[in-house]
Design a protein around this nucleic acid. Sequence first.
DNA 1: CTGTTAGCGCGTTCAG
DNA 2: CTGAACGCGCTAACAG
Lengths: 324, 324
Amino acid sequence: METVGRMAGVSQVTVSRALSEPSKVSSETLRRIHEAIRVTGFVPNAIAGALASQRSMLVSALVPSISNIVYASMIAAFNERMRARGYQILLSETGFDLGDEEAFIATHLSRRPDAVLLTGVHHSVQARRMLLAASVPVVEVWDISSTPIDICVGFSHVEAARAAADFAAKAGYRRAACLSAGDERARRRQQAFAEHFERSSGQPVVKAAFDAPATLANGRTGLSRLLQSGFSDGVVFCSSDLLAHGVLVEAHARGLAVPGDVAVIGFGDQDYAAAVEPALTTVRVDREALGAAAAETILSRFRGQQRVENVIDIGFDIIRRGSA
Amino acid sequence: METVGRMAGVSQVTVSRALSEPSKVSSETLRRIHEAIRVTGFVPNAIAGALASQRSMLVSALVPSISNIVYASMIAAFNERMRARGYQILLSETGFDLGDEEAFIATHLSRRPDAVLLTGVHHSVQARRMLLAASVPVVEVWDISSTPIDICVGFSHVEAARAAADFAAKAGYRRAACLSAGDERARRRQQAFAEHFERSSGQPVVKAAFDAPATLANGRTGLSRLLQSGFSDGVVFCSSDLLAHGVLVEAHARGLAVPGDVAVIGFGDQDYAAAVEPALTTVRVDREALGAAAAETILSRFRGQQRVENVIDIGFDIIRRGSA
DNA sequence: CTGTTAGCGCGTTCAG
DNA sequence: CTGAACGCGCTAACAG
């Protein structure tokens, strides 16, 4: 800035102002400064800016998995809103381990983010402490808690699973099975679905769970396991559309009719859910709305509104298509 | 650090050293310093550290799409290597627009990353200029160029498409079609496949291209369009496994046998490629190896090795499965 | 509208 | 093995 200023015949401070508050600089000096910037190829140093202003314009986001479209699409929506206000996202993949998450939180906080987004409402004690000490807005997404660290935006996994169980019972299915992949929230849904369905139908619900992440192959294996366990002629509640899709493929390979021989309910309503054969009945979670709502609450905190609603339930919908 | 030092009975400098070069501090002072850190809940300020040391420990990465598993899995591998060395990734989604990419590059460079990863080898003139001026290692991935900005790690899209065309011809297919989604590299592959197949078979290749990103639904629509255009009884070369999967679903819905009535070749070898019915014949690109190689070249630059090989071709493989 | 001054919280010399 | 002094490049007051 010193160099640019010298070239434009002004001081370093004026250059700084020209960049951050152009309205406070005369149009003529502004012109000369921009010309000097162009000639020198000057790129402002955001690090120094952050140190001086105590605002990094960085928001850190921690998700279990980047390659899981479920989180990726939520982050995309979040990112878009934040970027429109000049914030950049520092994204990390934590896996599903709370200890790892704690380490990531420490690393992220060292960069002094202006806000933090976390996935889920369960965090280590030390993590909570660090986040509170950082005294920046913290948003927990993808779940609901009555005692968030700061703000939470999500939906109730238990209620969603119960709604699916009600749907299955009302659709006339007498028997049900659950298929879930390795993630705590998925298992909570499985549990809630099973309890609720068993209560209303009186029939035991067969379960299969993978420790591994959800894949199409696991969906296929999952249906095989359920059939081996004696399940037949009922509905399979899957913890993700990907697993549900695998069930569809396996059913097809075995010559089982869907939903005649086996019905399928997915979770998430991914973009392919409506395109598979038969189209997937699923629980829709509006991930874009979730990411957007998370961004909005953070931004309103930045505007100084301390009294933001701190528990936002974005709900869910059961989307009935052909598979169940 | 001042506060921590006072509590431990040492100066700020010693605290700094205790954190960055513990071997240069006596074990007793080390102990007291760590105790003080624990009590105060001190979290080092990486911003100030970066400003003083002129090293941000940040590496910026620009990909067309975060939610596209193709890039996400490459970034995951890249990230893992860099993180092991203490670097954090600043990730942005550029879309497929070179102008937008330029804006992102400027924003990223203002954070003074220690290295930059870009997707593709085509960038705006201004982008190249800025990157060169930044004088940090720059890796272009996912393509090959004889004149990279600095380093490139990828494979030849033209050669991959030609290999697929050769495979199709040798497998006995006399007619072919191409299906591709909106991305310059996909279109280059489609072009190369068509030229090569037409030359060897003498038959014109039917083409369909989408401006939109690849989705399963587009794959279905794509097959419909190709059939309408008069295509039948041949092989469809798709620009991604997702499109190929859509073709599979649509063929099934229409009662067409795969590969009997229509054969399918995908691109990428995603994890579901082997799990669909029939399993997908596809062009495998080792995305993990790509991400890892990109990280390794950057890290060796950091170690001061200026003479790193600057064009790395990781190649590809044709994986023959059931669909073609 | 512009400039002066004083930090932001660290790492990096160089002395001891 | 430890500390004093300095500066990284910028923003935030304040004064003119």
